[in-house]
Write a protein that binds this DNA or RNA. Sequence first.
RNA 1: GCCCUCAUCGUCUAGUGGUUAGGACACCGGCUUCUCAAGCCGGCAGCAGGGGUUCGACUCCCCUUGAGGGUACCA
Length: 542
Amino acid sequence: MAVTRFAPSPTGYLHIGGARTALFDLIWAKNTGGKYILRMEDTDQSRNSPTAAKQVMDDLSWLGIKWDEGPEIGGPAGPYFQSQRLDIYNKYIQRLLDAGKAYYCFDTAEELERMRKEASDRKQNFLYRRPAKFPTLADVEAAKAQGRDVVVRFCMPDDEIIVNDIVRGEVRFNGKDLSDFIIQKSDGFPTYHLACVVDDELMGITHVIRGQEHLMNTPGHIVMQQAFGFKTPVYAHLSVIVSEGGGKMSKRERAKVLKAAIKKAQGLDKEKLAAIGGITIAEIDEFLSGDAMPDTPAIDAMAGYLKIELPEINIVDFFKSGFLPETLVNFIALLGYSPPIDKEIMTLQEIIDTFDPTRFNKTNCLFDRKKLVAFNMEHIKMLPEEKLLSRYKDFLKEVNSPAAKADDLLLKKVLKACAGARTLAEIDHKSRFLFTADDKVEYDQKDVEKVLLKNDGEGLAMLALLKEKLAALDKISEESIENLLRGIAEQKQIGLGKVAQPLRVAICGTTISLPIFESIEMLGINATITRMERTINEYSKK
RNA sequence: GCCCUCAUCGUCUAGUGGUUAGGACACCGGCUUCUCAAGCCGGCAGCAGGGGUUCGACUCCCCUUGAGGGUACCA
């Protein structure tokens, strides 16, 4: 029975790497019949936005990841926001201080910077080591009086520290290489290290599954656990997901693309851009020059204004691109892990049931969007009709599609006609013509040329003929339409394409759309004929 | 720089001393077709390099190279 936890720092939307960690925490717990806890690590007052925790929870929920204990649900080990547990941490920090395993210090930023520079000049890693004699409370008061910030550091021993990791095996560290790290910041908040160790114990966490970026922190955590007399949990450090350009796949990627676009944009109205992003011009300049980064909504808004596509990093990005949560879950679970069964397309339940913690692999992996698309197609095919419909409606609402207002019956027909589609966005695009006013259909000029005007307007002539025939049709059904169109093609000894394509352009404005018979049936005969007339009028005169 | 980790087709991976190195996605052909998809059939493609160990190394060891992570009063 494993008790696991996902412990995000609520700084914005949940991104793909975080989602994978969250997923494996869930899988591990559920596979062993254990418990899955969500804990918000909001100990950095400057980085945590008030809405971020909600966003992360929404994203987890969308993915179908439910926690047994945590925010909004509660539980015996709460509160589950670290910012609400300060008194607990203070008690533990005091214990370390009393035991002489932690000490106060009050270096200024400049002093620290100088020490770092000295170390790098000596071609050595910067190491903070405790003074021979720890500052007393009186020293602390004196330092405070001088206006110095006071922090608490934890004493690292010189011994070898062994981390037993499920993914990586035995990893050895030399305590001599590790700094006395800070456990309490000058604002009184604990750092990640302290809060994490204390909470894992208090919440009964047995298995810590997290990203590889935490591997170097682990020896420090283990020593601290020993100092407190805590049990050391089982560790599993997952390999990282890297993006095409190399480097960890993170939200920085999106900022990078946006920054490049802003710099490239000619005659850009910076004031307008700032207004749209809800930030100041100064903040934009700061963003362009340094490494300050606007928050996610601001980045999204500005990208929308500049009409550029940002790489998908956050879970919502994939939602908006028309991926199913089932697809993401399946795909993410296969990154750095391979199930013991010879099967790729799986439901979350199957992944949980067959989970084998020895089957993680150590290699960093690249996120292959094309494969994700292929997986999405499989999951669209696999999902029961009702479930797909509900996912599709969620999607339409999210992207503000006019189709969001359509009734279920029509949407079901659309979904059926789109069997084989790869994303929900594709389905939406292909069926937009159904939700466009008859006189608002936009014609793709290239398609018009190719299908209607070419060869002396043979397509247009076909349209005129079809209009008569369709108008004369007394029973409108997919079948009767098909019979009619096929009949004409046969009679004229031409391919069905010559008949269907002009019609398609007339009703959709483009040559890419749903199958033509279903299209007409769903659009309705009146609208079809209206659109044909409009097309004929529009292009006959030219 | 220093510390840590990793290394099988383009990508995700199977493989744990003896395999024709398997699958999936991508890609390339062909078939099918009212468009786009989908579907069906077929194909291309890999053990980073160099040393050992061994009767035998993709598999074990060492080095090189390459990649990633850490090096914060971020997590």
